[in-house]
Design a binder for these strands. Structure first.
Lengths: 184, 184
DNA sequence: AATTTTACCGACCGTTCGGTAGGTAAATAT
DNA sequence: ATATTTACCTACCGAACGGTCGGTAAAATT
Protein backbone atom coordinates (compact mmCIF):
# COMPACT_ATOMS: atom_id res chain seq x y z
CA UNK A 1 0.00 0.00 0.00
CA UNK A 2 1.27 3.41 -1.02
CA UNK A 3 -0.24 4.89 2.13
CA UNK A 4 2.18 2.88 4.18
CA UNK A 5 5.17 4.50 2.52
CA UNK A 6 3.66 7.92 3.02
CA UNK A 7 2.99 7.36 6.72
CA UNK A 8 6.41 5.81 7.08
CA UNK A 9 8.13 8.76 5.47
CA UNK A 10 6.32 11.57 7.26
CA UNK A 11 4.75 10.11 10.38
CA UNK A 12 1.09 10.02 11.33
CA UNK A 13 0.30 13.63 12.13
CA UNK A 14 2.49 15.07 9.39
CA UNK A 15 0.72 13.02 6.70
CA UNK A 16 -2.51 14.56 5.47
CA UNK A 17 -5.33 12.80 3.68
CA UNK A 18 -4.54 14.97 0.68
CA UNK A 19 -1.01 13.60 0.53
CA UNK A 20 -2.33 10.07 0.91
CA UNK A 21 -4.86 10.62 -1.85
CA UNK A 22 -2.20 12.02 -4.16
CA UNK A 23 0.07 9.08 -3.37
CA UNK A 24 -2.64 6.61 -4.33
CA UNK A 25 -3.78 8.49 -7.42
CA UNK A 26 -7.23 9.01 -5.93
CA UNK A 27 -9.05 12.12 -4.82
CA UNK A 28 -9.52 12.67 -1.11
CA UNK A 29 -13.22 11.78 -1.26
CA UNK A 30 -12.28 8.59 -3.02
CA UNK A 31 -10.11 7.63 -0.10
CA UNK A 32 -12.93 8.36 2.31
CA UNK A 33 -15.08 5.99 0.32
CA UNK A 34 -12.81 3.14 1.40
CA UNK A 35 -11.91 4.26 4.92
CA UNK A 36 -14.21 6.20 7.22
CA UNK A 37 -11.53 8.16 9.07
CA UNK A 38 -7.82 8.83 8.98
CA UNK A 39 -7.35 6.86 12.17
CA UNK A 40 -9.17 3.90 10.66
CA UNK A 41 -7.07 4.07 7.52
CA UNK A 42 -3.94 4.11 9.64
CA UNK A 43 -5.11 1.03 11.49
CA UNK A 44 -5.54 -0.81 8.21
CA UNK A 45 -2.14 0.38 7.04
CA UNK A 46 -0.59 -0.96 10.22
CA UNK A 47 -2.19 -4.35 9.76
CA UNK A 48 -0.84 -4.38 6.23
CA UNK A 49 2.61 -3.43 7.49
CA UNK A 50 2.40 -6.15 10.09
CA UNK A 51 1.60 -8.73 7.43
CA UNK A 52 4.51 -7.58 5.29
CA UNK A 53 6.77 -7.63 8.31
CA UNK A 54 5.73 -11.14 9.22
CA UNK A 55 6.14 -12.61 5.78
CA UNK A 56 9.34 -10.80 4.82
CA UNK A 57 11.25 -10.61 8.11
CA UNK A 58 9.82 -12.89 10.77
CA UNK A 59 9.29 -15.80 8.40
CA UNK A 60 13.05 -16.25 8.34
CA UNK A 61 12.89 -17.67 11.84
CA UNK A 62 11.23 -20.81 10.51
CA UNK A 63 13.74 -21.54 7.76
CA UNK A 64 15.01 -24.56 9.61
CA UNK A 65 17.48 -25.55 6.93
CA UNK A 66 19.76 -22.73 8.08
CA UNK A 67 21.72 -22.92 11.35
CA UNK A 68 20.46 -20.50 14.02
CA UNK A 69 23.33 -18.02 13.65
CA UNK A 70 22.67 -17.62 9.96
CA UNK A 71 18.96 -17.45 10.51
CA UNK A 72 19.39 -14.67 13.05
CA UNK A 73 21.74 -12.77 10.79
CA UNK A 74 19.43 -13.12 7.80
CA UNK A 75 16.46 -11.94 9.83
CA UNK A 76 18.29 -8.93 11.19
CA UNK A 77 19.72 -8.08 7.82
CA UNK A 78 16.28 -8.08 6.29
CA UNK A 79 15.09 -5.74 8.95
CA UNK A 80 18.06 -3.52 8.32
CA UNK A 81 17.23 -3.42 4.63
CA UNK A 82 13.81 -2.07 5.50
CA UNK A 83 15.27 0.45 7.93
CA UNK A 84 17.78 1.97 5.54
CA UNK A 85 15.26 2.18 2.70
CA UNK A 86 14.80 5.96 2.43
CA UNK A 87 16.43 6.04 5.88
CA UNK A 88 13.05 5.56 7.41
CA UNK A 89 13.99 3.33 10.32
CA UNK A 90 11.48 1.01 11.96
CA UNK A 91 7.87 1.82 11.11
CA UNK A 92 6.49 0.46 14.37
CA UNK A 93 9.00 2.28 16.55
CA UNK A 94 8.43 5.56 14.71
CA UNK A 95 4.68 5.42 15.15
CA UNK A 96 4.98 4.13 18.69
CA UNK A 97 7.06 7.08 19.84
CA UNK A 98 5.03 9.60 17.89
CA UNK A 99 1.62 8.49 19.11
CA UNK A 100 2.82 6.75 22.23
CA UNK A 101 1.11 8.75 24.91
CA UNK A 102 -2.44 8.66 23.57
CA UNK A 103 -1.75 5.05 22.66
CA UNK A 104 -3.92 5.28 19.52
CA UNK A 105 -2.29 2.25 17.93
CA UNK A 106 -0.58 0.65 20.87
CA UNK A 107 -2.41 -2.65 20.52
CA UNK A 108 -1.22 -3.35 16.97
CA UNK A 109 2.23 -2.02 17.78
CA UNK A 110 2.51 -4.26 20.80
CA UNK A 111 1.47 -7.24 18.72
CA UNK A 112 4.15 -6.46 16.15
CA UNK A 113 6.86 -6.12 18.75
CA UNK A 114 5.86 -9.26 20.57
CA UNK A 115 5.72 -11.28 17.35
CA UNK A 116 9.16 -10.02 16.59
CA UNK A 117 10.43 -11.01 20.00
CA UNK A 118 8.88 -14.45 19.60
CA UNK A 119 10.55 -14.98 16.22
CA UNK A 120 13.97 -14.07 17.58
CA UNK A 121 13.33 -16.07 20.73
CA UNK A 122 12.52 -19.10 18.61
CA UNK A 123 15.95 -18.90 17.01
CA UNK A 124 17.78 -18.33 20.27
CA UNK A 125 16.00 -21.15 22.05
CA UNK A 126 18.02 -23.72 20.12
CA UNK A 127 21.01 -22.74 22.16
CA UNK A 128 19.51 -21.72 25.48
CA UNK A 129 16.51 -22.40 27.74
CA UNK A 130 13.20 -20.88 26.67
CA UNK A 131 13.10 -18.29 29.43
CA UNK A 132 16.60 -17.03 28.72
CA UNK A 133 15.89 -16.98 24.99
CA UNK A 134 12.81 -14.88 25.52
CA UNK A 135 14.45 -12.19 27.63
CA UNK A 136 17.54 -12.16 25.45
CA UNK A 137 15.35 -11.71 22.37
CA UNK A 138 13.62 -8.77 23.99
CA UNK A 139 16.99 -7.32 24.90
CA UNK A 140 18.25 -7.71 21.35
CA UNK A 141 15.26 -5.92 19.92
CA UNK A 142 15.68 -3.06 22.37
CA UNK A 143 19.30 -2.69 21.40
CA UNK A 144 18.38 -2.85 17.74
CA UNK A 145 15.75 -0.14 18.06
CA UNK A 146 18.31 2.07 19.74
CA UNK A 147 20.75 1.35 16.94
CA UNK A 148 18.11 2.40 14.41
CA UNK A 149 17.61 5.64 16.34
CA UNK A 150 21.32 6.39 16.09
CA UNK A 151 21.28 5.44 12.45
CA UNK A 152 18.44 7.87 11.74
CA UNK A 153 20.29 10.63 13.57
CA UNK A 154 23.72 10.10 12.07
CA UNK A 155 23.00 8.29 8.80
CA UNK A 156 25.81 5.88 9.69
CA UNK A 157 24.89 2.33 8.79
CA UNK A 158 27.74 1.25 10.98
CA UNK A 159 25.46 1.43 14.02
CA UNK A 160 23.22 -1.23 12.51
CA UNK A 161 26.07 -3.29 11.19
CA UNK A 162 27.84 -3.30 14.54
CA UNK A 163 24.65 -4.40 16.23
CA UNK A 164 24.15 -7.33 13.88
CA UNK A 165 27.73 -8.36 14.46
CA UNK A 166 27.29 -8.20 18.24
CA UNK A 167 24.07 -10.20 18.09
CA UNK A 168 25.48 -12.95 15.91
CA UNK A 169 28.70 -13.15 17.90
CA UNK A 170 26.73 -13.45 21.12
CA UNK A 171 24.71 -16.27 19.67
CA UNK A 172 27.82 -18.10 18.52
CA UNK A 173 29.21 -17.83 22.02
CA UNK A 174 25.98 -19.21 23.42
CA UNK A 175 26.13 -22.01 20.89
CA UNK A 176 29.62 -23.06 21.94
CA UNK A 177 28.55 -22.91 25.55
CA UNK A 178 25.51 -25.10 24.93
CA UNK A 179 27.60 -27.63 22.99
CA UNK A 180 30.19 -27.86 25.70
CA UNK A 181 27.38 -28.46 28.19
CA UNK A 182 26.01 -31.30 26.11
CA UNK A 183 29.42 -32.91 25.97
CA UNK A 184 29.60 -33.15 29.76
CA UNK B 1 9.66 25.97 30.06
CA UNK B 2 6.02 24.96 29.72
CA UNK B 3 6.48 24.61 25.97
CA UNK B 4 8.85 21.74 26.58
CA UNK B 5 6.23 19.77 28.42
CA UNK B 6 3.72 20.42 25.68
CA UNK B 7 6.09 19.28 22.92
CA UNK B 8 7.10 16.35 25.04
CA UNK B 9 3.53 15.27 25.59
CA UNK B 10 2.22 15.64 22.05
CA UNK B 11 5.22 15.69 19.73
CA UNK B 12 6.26 18.42 17.33
CA UNK B 13 3.61 18.27 14.64
CA UNK B 14 0.77 17.54 16.98
CA UNK B 15 1.52 20.59 19.13
CA UNK B 16 0.05 23.81 17.76
CA UNK B 17 1.10 27.33 18.60
CA UNK B 18 -2.34 27.80 20.14
CA UNK B 19 -1.72 24.98 22.58
CA UNK B 20 1.70 26.37 23.40
CA UNK B 21 0.24 29.83 23.97
CA UNK B 22 -2.44 28.44 26.23
CA UNK B 23 0.14 26.42 28.15
CA UNK B 24 2.23 29.53 28.80
CA UNK B 25 -0.71 31.78 29.63
CA UNK B 26 0.00 34.01 26.63
CA UNK B 27 -1.88 34.63 23.44
CA UNK B 28 -0.50 33.23 20.24
CA UNK B 29 0.75 36.60 19.01
CA UNK B 30 2.50 37.06 22.34
CA UNK B 31 4.46 33.90 21.67
CA UNK B 32 5.39 35.15 18.21
CA UNK B 33 6.75 38.27 19.83
CA UNK B 34 9.42 36.13 21.49
CA UNK B 35 10.03 33.52 18.77
CA UNK B 36 9.80 34.20 15.06
CA UNK B 37 8.60 30.73 13.99
CA UNK B 38 7.44 27.47 15.47
CA UNK B 39 10.62 25.78 14.31
CA UNK B 40 12.72 28.43 16.01
CA UNK B 41 10.75 28.08 19.20
CA UNK B 42 11.29 24.33 19.10
CA UNK B 43 15.00 24.84 18.69
CA UNK B 44 15.08 26.99 21.80
CA UNK B 45 13.01 24.45 23.67
CA UNK B 46 15.46 21.74 22.69
CA UNK B 47 18.40 23.76 23.93
CA UNK B 48 16.56 24.27 27.17
CA UNK B 49 15.84 20.56 27.40
CA UNK B 50 19.47 19.81 26.71
CA UNK B 51 20.54 22.11 29.54
CA UNK B 52 18.10 20.47 31.93
CA UNK B 53 19.26 17.05 30.80
CA UNK B 54 22.89 17.93 31.35
CA UNK B 55 22.48 19.42 34.77
CA UNK B 56 19.99 16.88 36.11
CA UNK B 57 21.10 13.62 34.51
CA UNK B 58 24.55 13.85 32.99
CA UNK B 59 26.01 15.82 35.87
CA UNK B 60 25.82 12.62 37.93
CA UNK B 61 28.76 11.25 35.96
CA UNK B 62 31.10 13.73 37.67
CA UNK B 63 30.04 12.95 41.23
CA UNK B 64 33.37 11.34 41.93
CA UNK B 65 32.59 10.59 45.58
CA UNK B 66 30.36 7.72 44.44
CA UNK B 67 31.78 4.47 43.09
CA UNK B 68 31.17 3.98 39.34
CA UNK B 69 28.43 1.36 39.78
CA UNK B 70 26.41 3.69 41.99
CA UNK B 71 27.06 6.63 39.70
CA UNK B 72 25.79 4.68 36.71
CA UNK B 73 22.74 3.49 38.57
CA UNK B 74 21.95 6.99 39.85
CA UNK B 75 22.32 8.45 36.36
CA UNK B 76 20.09 5.83 34.78
CA UNK B 77 17.56 6.12 37.54
CA UNK B 78 17.32 9.86 37.02
CA UNK B 79 16.71 9.30 33.35
CA UNK B 80 14.08 6.77 34.18
CA UNK B 81 12.36 9.27 36.45
CA UNK B 82 12.09 11.65 33.51
CA UNK B 83 10.85 8.90 31.21
CA UNK B 84 8.04 7.69 33.44
CA UNK B 85 6.86 11.24 34.22
CA UNK B 86 3.52 11.29 32.37
CA UNK B 87 4.87 8.22 30.57
CA UNK B 88 6.52 10.48 28.07
CA UNK B 89 9.70 8.53 27.47
CA UNK B 90 12.86 10.17 26.19
CA UNK B 91 12.27 13.61 24.70
CA UNK B 92 15.21 13.40 22.32
CA UNK B 93 14.30 9.97 21.01
CA UNK B 94 10.67 10.95 20.51
CA UNK B 95 11.53 14.00 18.47
CA UNK B 96 14.30 12.19 16.62
CA UNK B 97 11.99 9.47 15.34
CA UNK B 98 9.17 11.89 14.59
CA UNK B 99 11.23 14.39 12.62
CA UNK B 100 14.05 12.05 11.75
CA UNK B 101 13.85 12.00 7.99
CA UNK B 102 13.79 15.74 7.33
CA UNK B 103 16.37 16.02 10.09
CA UNK B 104 14.99 19.36 11.24
CA UNK B 105 16.62 19.11 14.64
CA UNK B 106 19.16 16.39 14.09
CA UNK B 107 22.13 18.55 15.08
CA UNK B 108 20.86 19.30 18.57
CA UNK B 109 19.60 15.76 18.98
CA UNK B 110 22.94 14.31 17.97
CA UNK B 111 24.66 16.59 20.45
CA UNK B 112 22.38 15.41 23.22
CA UNK B 113 22.94 11.76 22.43
CA UNK B 114 26.67 12.12 22.14
CA UNK B 115 26.90 14.05 25.41
CA UNK B 116 24.94 11.28 27.00
CA UNK B 117 27.24 8.65 25.59
CA UNK B 118 30.25 10.61 26.80
CA UNK B 119 28.86 10.84 30.32
CA UNK B 120 28.23 7.10 30.51
CA UNK B 121 31.55 6.39 28.88
CA UNK B 122 33.29 8.48 31.52
CA UNK B 123 31.85 6.26 34.22
CA UNK B 124 32.65 3.01 32.43
CA UNK B 125 36.21 4.05 31.64
CA UNK B 126 37.20 3.55 35.25
CA UNK B 127 36.89 -0.18 34.72
CA UNK B 128 37.82 -0.58 31.06
CA UNK B 129 39.91 1.01 28.33
CA UNK B 130 38.57 4.21 26.79
CA UNK B 131 37.65 2.66 23.46
CA UNK B 132 35.70 -0.19 25.02
CA UNK B 133 34.00 2.22 27.40
CA UNK B 134 32.86 4.39 24.53
CA UNK B 135 31.32 1.62 22.47
CA UNK B 136 29.79 -0.02 25.53
CA UNK B 137 28.27 3.33 26.53
CA UNK B 138 26.72 3.69 23.08
CA UNK B 139 25.41 0.14 23.30
CA UNK B 140 23.89 0.80 26.73
CA UNK B 141 22.09 3.87 25.48
CA UNK B 142 20.73 1.99 22.51
CA UNK B 143 19.42 -0.73 24.76
CA UNK B 144 17.94 1.86 27.08
CA UNK B 145 16.12 3.66 24.29
CA UNK B 146 14.65 0.37 23.21
CA UNK B 147 13.58 -0.30 26.77
CA UNK B 148 11.85 3.07 26.86
CA UNK B 149 10.04 2.18 23.65
CA UNK B 150 8.73 -0.99 25.23
CA UNK B 151 7.81 0.92 28.36
CA UNK B 152 5.80 3.42 26.34
CA UNK B 153 4.00 0.61 24.55
CA UNK B 154 3.23 -1.57 27.53
CA UNK B 155 3.37 0.85 30.49
CA UNK B 156 5.45 -1.73 32.32
CA UNK B 157 8.24 -0.07 34.27
CA UNK B 158 9.80 -3.48 34.55
CA UNK B 159 11.42 -3.00 31.13
CA UNK B 160 13.34 0.00 32.44
CA UNK B 161 14.09 -1.57 35.77
CA UNK B 162 15.43 -4.74 34.15
CA UNK B 163 17.65 -2.67 31.93
CA UNK B 164 19.14 -0.75 34.83
CA UNK B 165 19.79 -4.01 36.61
CA UNK B 166 21.52 -5.46 33.56
CA UNK B 167 23.66 -2.38 33.09
CA UNK B 168 24.78 -2.21 36.70
CA UNK B 169 25.43 -5.95 36.86
CA UNK B 170 27.53 -5.75 33.71
CA UNK B 171 29.56 -2.94 35.16
CA UNK B 172 30.17 -4.86 38.36
CA UNK B 173 31.38 -7.79 36.34
CA UNK B 174 33.72 -5.51 34.42
CA UNK B 175 34.93 -4.09 37.70
CA UNK B 176 35.84 -7.51 39.08
CA UNK B 177 37.54 -8.34 35.86
CA UNK B 178 39.60 -5.14 35.92
CA UNK B 179 40.59 -5.73 39.55
CA UNK B 180 41.70 -9.25 38.85
CA UNK B 181 43.78 -7.95 35.97
CA UNK B 182 45.47 -5.43 38.22
CA UNK B 183 46.33 -8.17 40.70
CA UNK B 184 48.29 -10.10 38.09
C1' DA C 1 -33.33 -4.65 -19.81
C1' DA C 2 -33.98 -2.52 -15.47
C1' DT C 3 -32.13 -1.88 -11.03
C1' DT C 4 -28.95 -1.57 -7.54
C1' DT C 5 -24.44 -1.20 -5.84
C1' DT C 6 -19.63 0.25 -6.14
C1' DA C 7 -15.98 3.40 -7.00
C1' DC C 8 -14.99 7.57 -7.55
C1' DC C 9 -15.16 12.77 -8.50
C1' DG C 10 -15.38 18.14 -7.90
C1' DA C 11 -16.97 21.26 -4.74
C1' DC C 12 -17.58 22.48 -0.39
C1' DC C 13 -18.13 22.44 5.02
C1' DG C 14 -16.43 24.32 9.55
C1' DT C 15 -12.14 24.30 12.04
C1' DT C 16 -7.49 24.87 12.85
C1' DC C 17 -3.06 25.71 11.12
C1' DG C 18 1.32 28.90 11.17
C1' DG C 19 1.85 33.52 10.93
C1' DT C 20 0.81 38.89 10.59
C1' DA C 21 -1.12 43.76 11.35
C1' DG C 22 -2.13 47.28 14.22
C1' DG C 23 -2.88 48.92 18.57
C1' DT C 24 -2.14 49.75 23.77
C1' DA C 25 -0.38 50.02 28.33
C1' DA C 26 3.60 49.62 31.04
C1' DA C 27 8.48 49.85 31.55
C1' DT C 28 12.83 52.03 30.20
C1' DA C 29 15.86 55.52 28.32
C1' DT C 30 16.87 60.26 27.48
C1' DA D 1 8.60 65.22 31.11
C1' DT D 2 9.09 63.20 26.74
C1' DA D 3 10.38 59.70 23.58
C1' DT D 4 11.26 55.06 22.73
C1' DT D 5 11.23 50.40 23.37
C1' DT D 6 9.19 46.14 25.24
C1' DA D 7 5.52 43.00 26.08
C1' DC D 8 1.52 41.74 24.94
C1' DC D 9 -3.34 41.99 23.16
C1' DT D 10 -7.49 41.46 19.67
C1' DA D 11 -8.48 40.63 15.22
C1' DC D 12 -7.41 38.75 11.22
C1' DC D 13 -5.00 36.35 6.92
C1' DG D 14 -4.64 32.59 3.33
C1' DA D 15 -3.77 27.84 3.37
C1' DA D 16 -4.45 23.39 4.86
C1' DC D 17 -6.77 20.34 7.87
C1' DG D 18 -10.23 16.16 8.47
C1' DG D 19 -14.41 15.17 6.67
C1' DT D 20 -19.09 15.52 3.91
C1' DC D 21 -22.17 16.41 -0.04
C1' DG D 22 -24.61 15.43 -4.32
C1' DG D 23 -23.70 13.50 -8.42
C1' DT D 24 -21.94 10.21 -12.21
C1' DA D 25 -20.31 6.46 -14.85
C1' DA D 26 -19.24 1.78 -14.78
C1' DA D 27 -19.86 -2.76 -12.87
C1' DA D 28 -22.61 -6.23 -10.76
C1' DT D 29 -27.24 -8.15 -9.63
C1' DT D 30 -31.78 -9.43 -10.74
Amino acid sequence: MRCWEEFHLNGYYNTSMQKLAAATGLQKAGLYHHYPTKEDLMRRVMEFALDQFRSYVLAVSTELDLPPEQRLEKLLRRHKKLAILHRRGCFFANIALETGREGLFNEVLKTGMMDWADAVSKILSEYMPAGAAQSEALRLIMEYEGAVLFYKLTAEEEHLEAFIHRAVTNLKRASEHSISLKQV
